[in-house]
């Protein structure tokens, strides 16, 4: 899952190095506009709905965090 998300996001946002940090949001690498773009990409790729409660730093700070969230929402 992590690999799949990394490939997807690297294609969508080539200017961002997603593996550079485990605190993408806290370090300011991802702003709110980029996060909405990531959410849209995840919705389209995995057919999930990401509720507002899930849009927290913890879930977007790393590819691993995003993968955990997607798996949880798929299950």
């Amino acid at each position: 899952m992590e690999e799949k998300i990394l490939t997807l996001l690297s294609e969508e946002f080539p200017e961002i190095d997603f593996s550079a940090s485990d605190a993408l949001v806290d370090d300011g690498i991802l702003d709110s506009l980029t996060i909405t773009g990531i959410i849209a990409a995840l919705i389209m790729e995995f057919g999930i709905i990401i509720p507002y409660e899930e849009i927290i730093e913890e879930n977007f700070n790393s590819i691993a965090g995003m993968a955990r969230m997607v798996e949880r929402l798929q299950g």
């Binding site: 909405t36 773009g37 959410i39 849209a40 990409a41 919705i43 389209m44 057919g47 999930i48 709905i49 990401i50 509720p51 507002y52 899930e54 849009i55």
Partner: peptide, 23 residues
């Protein structure tokens, strides 16, 4: 943005017109 309504719209737009429309 995180509502079911918009998520379904994104999926529908993607299904009909492709990724760009979904975005």
């Amino acid at each position: 943005f995180a509502s079911k309504f918009v998520a379904n719209l994104i999926k529908k737009a993607k299904g009909k017109y492709g990724n760009k429309a979904g975005r």
